[in-house]
Write a protein that binds this DNA or RNA. Structure first.
Lengths: 341, 341
DNA sequence: TAATTTCTGAGGTTCGTACCTCAAATTCCT
DNA sequence: AGGAATTTGAGGTACGAACCTCAGAAATTA
């Protein structure tokens, strides 16, 4: 029942400890015959490296970074807080985490920063940056230099080849659609959709998922064209008012962006939030308060703490040349009402 | 930046390594003056045991048990599956997990089994057993014998003093109430509530939470008295039919138990599931299929994989004399629609 | 066959902590 | 002050894997 060691492995394989070591650590000068012999023995006795021993010998903490946006509102604060919590929890775990803030508006700045990172600086990085070709290339090169990368919450397209932590935004939008549809009931009317910007992949995917459900399941409802606030209150109010002037029958509002405050505070000027169905994304002090006061009807959220830990587990696994546990690492689309906060 | 070792600690405290060892491992024959000196040094330099070294030296896997019910349906299968998955994931982690099945109907059998466990047998156990005084006592004594215990999903009352993994059932019931209320809309009518048994604390708490929300927020709806199936199909059908005969205006059904199949299949005989609002607990193949076919409108779930990992992390932390990370270990009340499965 | 290259084995050291023994120093008690 | 009890120090071993060196065996080439 006791775990086999390299010594047992050597014995079973009929080779010396030195050879076992050469095979396990991919050192040169091993005949392919010997190599297979050892590998067969590994299978046979179910040998697994003793991580404690490896880490002890390593005697250097794993160093990971989180690259977060420079600008944001409450959801960004939540993320930063989640990273800080992880820092404390990982003190015992030979892991050092630091947060880097980047202006995400210019992909070249991001790509440039990534281009300067060497494997000797950090073991891995979790990147929350909008999709863009320069960033994508920088990530690929970064990985080639031996730095492990996790796409964090906001991903590059086609992330099969990268590790990704975050929700399926299409499904998140669809979930929002389901809730809006069911909560509104049978009354025909329109739905306002507000985003920070529709440039980002996240917003686009959420919008697609939302429309798909509304159109297929709740055809008495009509989603209006997306409004983009660009983080500007005046603009937000103007375009909202404009859309309302042309659509008197708005029954629901779906706020697509992760930061809901600006949008919600803007529509509040023109609509009675208690009379319409309002679905937003992400749990923040603002959205929670609005949910409790029943102005917001549901929050679609991805748990930042979970996401951060998940990213760290993946980076850790990659650094130790293990496969991440995929079952554990998928971030759930949470639906929050005021009862299950 | 490099982590301080016991050697550094000894130096700062102005004592020998042997004394540091005596303090760290609570050995006798240390003057209180010396003890405080060392403890102050620990604070000062922020010393933390190097877990890798401890585990290496320990050279024995942590052994944990999950005590699950003997009888159950699909949710039990999910739990067992989750434990099995954890087994594989933890091979690398010096952790051995085994599953024990117990007939949960007789508390004395459970208490008796727990009474035979010694700290030399296992390091910790996650117990999923209904509330009862003999079990409660057995757990207390088990802990006194040095075996770490986690209440798993189903807890003894007043679990402040015990570690508990699972959702707040009052809140889970309230969430179900919220969904039922919002999905039904304004039509007045009654709600059928079906449980396996109302003997268990879980069911009672869920029912309370459910009633609280329905009565306070959706007063046009009237929850009917709980029906108890006792896991018997014939009985279920009989009592359901009986209640329907006296209440023609059933608009919704809330299935309280973790195993929804029996109840849902029974009401299906008498009601068109697509016409009523149906909320059930726990994600199982059955409930997922029913959700997809839109017979079930929402699933309130606690993720078994998450719960299992959480229980194991707590047991591990306790075994290593660490504080569990409470933020991470709370199990969320998940709300599942067919879009966010 | 001899010279050369490639492979394998034996043995040592290191990481940080736990646990051990034994001697020496300090305190306590009469 | 003397003896006993308590407290402290010095030093060792062990855990499992990574990495090192060096000698010698085996295979390959000339």
């Amino acid at each position: 029942m006791i775990a086999p060691t390299t010594k047992d492995l050597a014995e079973v394989a009929g080779v010396s400890l030195a050879t076992v070591d050469r095979v396990l650590n991919n050192r040169p000068n091993v005949s392919s015959k010997t190599r297979t012999k050892v590998q067969k023995a590994i299978e046979e006795i179910g040998f697994v490296r003793n991580l404690a021993a490896v880490n002890l010998l390593r005697n250097r903490p794993y160093k990971f970074q989180f690259m977060l946006p420079q600008n944001g509102d409450q959801y960004l604060d939540e993320l930063i807080h989640a990273v800080d919590e992880a820092k404390n929890a990982l003190k015992i775990d030979m892991t050092v985490v630091e947060t880097i803030r980047q202006d995400m508006r210019d992909p070249h700045v991001i790509a440039n920063y990534l281009g300067l990172i060497e494997a000797s600086d950090i073991d891995g990085i979790a990147i929350m940056a909008p999709e863009s070709p320069p960033v994508r290339d920088a990530i690929v090169r970064l990985q080639e230099r031996g730095v492990h990368v996790v796409q964090f919450l906001s991903g590059q397209e086609n992330f099969e080849e990268f590790d990704f932590v975050g929700v399926n935004n299409y499904a998140a939008g669809a979930t929002a659609g389901r809730i809006v549809g069911r909560f509104v009931g049978d009354t025909p009317g329109t739905i306002m959709v507000i985003a920070d910007t529709m440039q980002s992949l996240d917003s686009i995917e959420r919008r697609h998922g939302f429309d798909e459900i509304i159109n297929s399941k709740f055809s008495s409802l009509k989603p209006l064209p997306s409004l983009e606030t660009y983080g500007n209150t005046e603009r937000a109010q103007k375009i909202i008012k404009n859309q309302l002037d042309h659509n008197a029958d708005v029954l629901a509002v779906y706020v697509i962006s992760s930061e809901a405050r600006l949008a919600v505070e803007s529509i509040q000027q023109y609509l009675d939030l208690k009379k319409i169905v309002l679905v937003v994304h992400e749990r923040t002090p603002f959205s929670v308060a609005a949910l409790k006061s029943e102005e917001v009807d549901a929050i679609i959220a991805q748990n930042p703490g979970h996401a951060v830990r998940s990213a760290l587990r993946i980076l850790r696994a990659r650094s130790e040349e293990r496969k991440p546990n995929t079952a554990q690492e998928s971030v759930r689309i949470e639906v929050l009402f005021c009862e299950n906060l």
